[in-house]
Amino acid sequence: MSGGREHPMVLAERVHKAFGPVEVLRGIDLKVEAGEVSCVVGPSGSGKSTFLRCINHLEKINAGRLWVDGGLVGYRQKGDRLYEMKEREVAEQRRDIGMVFQRFNLFPHMTAAENVMEAPVQVKGIGKAAARERAEQLLRRVGLADRMETYPAQLSGGQQQRVAIARALAMDPKLMLFDEPTSALDPELVGEVLDVMRGLAADGMTMIVVTHEMGFAREVGDSLVFMDDGVVVESGRPRDVLNDPQHARTRAFLSKVL
């Protein structure tokens, strides 16, 4: 892995994705530099989440190219040919990409600490004691140091999502994907999760955030991408896009959510 930054963290070129006859992504071009916080907004069904899931190969793309940190996602290129990656190689790629889900998806049979320790111990082979110490650090970072031994069912939604963020951070990812992280939360719990994400952004984490929180996008985002109907309609600095949208579709969407 090269030390220099001659390539962006995420680069998408004309990415297409179809589920059967339904074309969900119809040519996405996107570039996210290291350290950048990119917020993706758009109406539901616009393909935002699908695109996010393509980045760590939870979905296979049908056409176009997608690179993360200079490496092609899910394929190896030799000459002109593409070779599908083996399961092991895909898993290796995913280690460096953290993902936070709308429905948290914490492991319900494990305590908060065990959730955070699971991947470092099972995937990276780190010793349990060391993993536990790191889990404590990470849970303290998200404000849940006193909930180490608590099971997810005993935590509020906001707390669960913060554990999920700690769990993703435990693999020391170079890129974090957030799939509507606050959409399943009660309104008064949204703030605590956004605070943690704000902290991450301040620490220089590269983040792609699919969200409906325009305030967060404006305040924390380095770039804003507006997607509709499987294409990127408009992108730029959040302030510019939100204050002075160039496209009619963007204007129509923003007038509904702002």
């Binding site: 760590n56 939870l58 399961e87 092991r88 898993a91 290796e92 995913r94 280690r95 990409i97 953290g98 993902m99 889900f101 429905r103 998806n105 914490l106 492991f107 699971e118 991947a119 099972q122 995937v123 769990r167 993703a168 693999m171």
Partner: peptide, 19 residues
């Protein structure tokens, strides 16, 4: 979603099933 979360953390199929 449990399988997806495990895969997103870099766990392979066998580990995801077992753990």
């Amino acid at each position: 979603g449990q399988t997806e979360a495990a895969h997103a953390l870099g766990m392979n199929g066998a580990k995801t099933t077992r753990r």
